[in-house]
Amino acid sequence: NQASVVANQLIPINTALTLVMMRAEVVTPMGIPAVDIPRLVSMQVNRAVPLGTTLMPDMVKGYA
């Protein structure tokens, strides 16, 4: 099973992602693959992402 990107903290809307905000976890359903974490750094979320939420492609501006 491939790990997905999960929020390590509450990420407010329009926040630029940093490594500290994300962790890799095997979850269902799968979200953004953990291998993409370096690519996500400095991209912004388009909604508030609660702690423990799996990041989906439509939550990150410019990802999809």
Rank of each mutant, 00 (worst) to 15 (best):
T18R: 07
A34W: 11
L19P: 06
G31K: 01
P29V: 12
V20R: 07
G52Q: 05
P12A: 11
V35C: 05
D36W: 06
V41H: 07
M22D: 00
P38Y: 09
G62K: 11
Q2H: 15
D36L: 05
I13Y: 10
T18K: 05
M56T: 11
S4P: 00
I37G: 04
P57C: 14
M22C: 03
P38E: 08
G62M: 14
R39D: 04
G31E: 01
A64S: 15
L55V: 13
R23N: 04
V45A: 07
P38N: 08
S4L: 01
N1M: 15
T18F: 07
I11T: 01
D36Y: 07
N14I: 02
V45W: 02
P57Y: 14
A64H: 11
Q9D: 15
I32D: 01
L40V: 09
I32F: 03
M59Y: 13
M43F: 12
P12T: 10
Q9T: 11
I13A: 10
A7N: 02
L51Q: 09
L19E: 04
Q44P: 12
V5L: 04
K61Y: 10
L17E: 00
N46F: 12
M21D: 03
L17M: 11
A34S: 12
L19D: 03
R23Q: 04
T28G: 05
A48R: 12
V6E: 02
N1Q: 15
A24Q: 15
E25D: 14
R47F: 10
D58V: 12
P50W: 14
N8P: 02
M21V: 03
M56K: 08
M21Q: 04
I11A: 01
I13M: 12
I11H: 01
M43I: 05
P50G: 11
V20N: 11
V35L: 09
P50R: 10
M43N: 07
L10S: 11
G31C: 03
V26R: 03
I13T: 13
Q44S: 15
M59Q: 10
L17P: 02
T28P: 02
M22V: 08
M43T: 06
N46E: 12
A16F: 12
P29R: 03
A3P: 13
V41R: 05
V41P: 03
T54S: 07
P57F: 10
M59K: 02
I11E: 01
Y63G: 04
G31V: 02
R39H: 06
A24I: 14
N46T: 14
E25I: 03
Q2Y: 15
Q2E: 15
V49S: 02
P38G: 10
R23S: 07
A3Q: 08
L55G: 01
A7F: 01
P33R: 04
Q9K: 08
Q44W: 12
V60P: 01
G52L: 05
S4H: 01
K61A: 12
V49Q: 02
L40Q: 00
A16D: 04
S42E: 09
L51N: 09
N1V: 15
T53L: 15
N1C: 06
R47V: 09
T15S: 06
L17I: 07
V5W: 02
A16G: 04
G52R: 06
I37H: 02
T15M: 09
V60G: 01
M56D: 07
N14M: 07
N8Q: 12
A3K: 04
G31N: 01
A16V: 10
P38R: 04
V26Y: 11
P12Q: 12
R47T: 09
M59V: 08
T54I: 15
V49C: 04
M56V: 08
L40M: 12
V35K: 05
N8Y: 07
R39L: 13
V35P: 07
P29K: 11
N8I: 07
G31W: 02
T15N: 09
Q9H: 11
Q44R: 10
N14L: 05
A3D: 15
A48P: 07
L10Y: 08
I32S: 01
A7P: 01
L19T: 05
T53K: 08
T15W: 06
T28K: 03
S4E: 01
I11M: 06
M30K: 04
L10C: 15
D36H: 09
P38W: 07
I37E: 02
M56Q: 14
R39V: 10
P57A: 14
V35R: 04
K61M: 12
V49Y: 02
T15K: 04
R47L: 08
G52S: 13
P33A: 14
G31A: 03
M43W: 12
Q44D: 05
D36M: 05
Y63N: 05
Q44Y: 14
V27L: 09
T28Q: 14
V5Q: 00
S42H: 10
A48E: 11
P29G: 05
K61F: 08
G62V: 05
A3S: 13
K61I: 12
V45Q: 00
A7T: 12
L55S: 00
Y63T: 04
L51F: 13
G62R: 06
M56G: 14
A64I: 15
Q9S: 14
V27Y: 03
T53G: 11
D36P: 01
M30S: 13
P12N: 11
P57M: 09
A34P: 06
V45D: 00
V41I: 11
D58M: 14
V5M: 02
E25A: 09
P57H: 11
I37L: 13
T18N: 03
M22T: 02
A48F: 09
D58C: 15
V20T: 11
L55Y: 01
